[in-house]
Design a binder for these strands. Structure first.
Length: 492
RNA sequence: GGGCCGUUAGCUCAGUUGGCAGAGCACCGGCCUUUUAAGCCGGGUGUCCAGGGUUCGAUCCCCUGACGGCCCA
């Protein structure tokens, strides 16, 4: 039947309901449990025992199947916590009520009241004594057996994806569990959850192109934050020793399997920690998030086994290229040779020094090889403007990036708290900023420098990409599968 | 931004070496009081993504575009 006809049939049925004086969208329905709670109590109860107790239930949900049998019918009711079969009998309900049930469309919401029993085949079933109309569905549900596969529809109309594909519901439940586990462990370790501005007059804390917006009353240009870092560190100055911010960041860059323009980041800071202690804590926190607190069970990600066994590997950026990437030490140590090697591989090298070239090699060439967790440590100063220099070194900072499943998962460092050096680095960045180089803010965040001048304790901080974490935990190959409404191009 | 692939019924998908468009589920009409991907009988419901071209004839071949996927930047 053509779509217009399908919709017309449903609209006609809605009109018929209303003609019969039935409210198709009543304000309330009386329910005394969920399918899940009913199943928890009676899934194991035998047929004869059920007969004896005759448990009364009132449930509401969508009708997802209707099997007519002349003077009776079976239907499946799905309330979002699970589905349960209902048995309707003409003799019990009367002709009008039974006839109205037969006229239901799949997807309509109903409330049922009745008694639990087991059918001949042992299925837990509600023998419906009374039912009421709860809400009309004017459009057809996706097909019940194959589900909904069209990726475009799945993302654009996520509600259909959630209705049709139970695995998808599980992913988003898992996402919520992970967030709960992260918060619980941070809270237990005296981290204070805070909210810092999304609308910022200047952006910072990462190298990324921002989204711009404007506040009308103040007639003020603003940026959506690319990271909360500089505000969280202001809080360290203010005496909040451990803070975290779990929220959305926005980067006006490409979209890929690992990038969505808005994404969720957990960022936290601890006074008096250094980057080594932060790595220890991150290991512990992530193992909890994965549900393997001792790290003993591996994760399977995209067909590869990924060991969580602690301690997680820590290798310097230089060694990561040599040991993990099988690159020659001579190549890794020779700026010109490395630049040529990257040019051959079409990796952009403009303006980069040896440190930047090494980072580019890691990002573009070696990263896919990093499956089991590895902290790449001791980053070049030239690409780390907010990190503290490693004692005894001139161009290496106390910074790490965590790689898992071929993805960058986290980035952390011992925080630079010397206002003079921070000011120098920021001024240098702005001075070297190209005309259209949006990755660097147009001016120095002097307000942040003033904050540091008031004194910031030594501290370590980290940012963890929550979406990628959920990808690992749910074995999802694309970030769109762990974000409910990923950004897609507008149609038409 | 570049390359490759895809877009056919509400959904999942076949198909036409260019000649009236197919299946299962859903849907519509009928039968059926323990079915559960219920079953049985009957019914195909369509802008074959859009526009242009080639052709007697295009869903199919060519071009352009839209949207999506994968890979690369």
């Amino acid at each position: 039947m053509a779509e217009d006809d399908l919709l017309k049939h449903r609209r006609d049925k809605l009109a018929a309901l209303e003609t019969a004086g039935i409210d198709a969208y009543p304000a309330r329905v009386s329910v005394d449990g969920t399918v899940q709670s009913v199943r928890a109590r009676f899934d194991e109860t035998e047929a004869d025992e059920l007969e004896e107790i005759a448990p009364g239930v009132r449930l509401a949900g969508r009708v997802t199947a209707l099997r007519e049998h002349g003077k009776s019918a079976f239907s499946d009711l799905d309330d979002g916590t699970g589905h349960i079969q209902c048995h309707l009998r003409q003799k019990l309900l009367g002709d009008d009520s039974f006839g109205a049930w037969i006229e239901l469309d799949l997807g309509d919401f109903v409330g049922v009241e009745g008694t639990l029993f087991r059918t001949r085949t042992g299925e837990l079933t509600v023998r419906v004594d009374r039912w009421e109309f709860v809400a009309k569905a004017l459009r057809p549900m996706p097909e019940k057996w194959h589900g909904l596969k069209d990726t475009e529809v799945r993302y654009r109309q996520r509600y259909l994806d959630l209705l049709a594909n139970p695995d998808v519901r599980d992913i988003f439940r898992r996402r919520a569990e992970i967030i709960r586990a992260l918060r619980a462990h941070l809270d237990a370790n005296d981290f204070l959850e805070v909210e810092t501005p999304t609308l910022q007059p200047l952006y910072g804390g990462a190298a990324a192109r921002p989204f711009r917006t404007h506040h009308n009353t103040l007639d003020m240009d603003l940026y959506l934050r690319i990271a909360p870092e500089l505000y969280l560190k202001r809080l360290l100055v203010g005496g909040l020793q451990r803070v975290y911010d779990l929220n959305r960041n926005f980067r006006n860059e490409g979209i890929s399997r690992q990038h969505n323009p808005e994404f969720t980041m957990l960022e936290f800071y601890a006074a008096y920690w250094d980057y080594g202690r932060m790595m220890d804590f991150a290991e512990e926190l992530l193992c909890l998030a994965f549900g393997h607190p001792d790290g003993s069970s591996p994760l399977t990600y995209q067909g590869e086994e990924l060991s969580l066994a602690r301690p997680w590997a820590r290798v310097t950026l230089r060694d990561a290229l040599i040991e993990r990437g099988n690159m020659d030490a001579a190549l890794v140590d020779d700026e010109n040779a490395l630049r040529a090697w990257l040019d051959e591989r079409d990796v952009a090298t403009g303006g980069l020094g040896l440190g930047g070239l090494r980072e580019a090699a890691l990002d573009k060439v070696v990263k896919p090889l990093l499956t089991s967790p590895v902290f790449v440590v001791d980053y070049p100063l030239e690409i780390s403007p907010l990190s503290k220099v490693k004692p005894g070194e001139s161009d290496v900072v106390e910074r790490f990036e965590l790689y898992m499943g071929g993805m960058e998962i986290a980035n952390g460092y011992s925080e630079l708290n010397d206002p003079r050096e921070q000011g120098r680095r920021m001024r240098e960045q702005v001075a070297n900023r190209g005309e259209h180089d949006d990755e660097v803010p147009p001016e120095v965040d002097e307000d942040y420098i003033v904050a540091l001048e008031h004194g910031m304790p030594p501290a370590a901080g980290i940012g963890i990409g929550l979406d990628r974490l959920v990808m690992l935990a749910t074995d999802s190959s694309t970030i769109r599968d762990v974000i409910l409404f990923p950004l897609l191009r507008q149609r038409d």
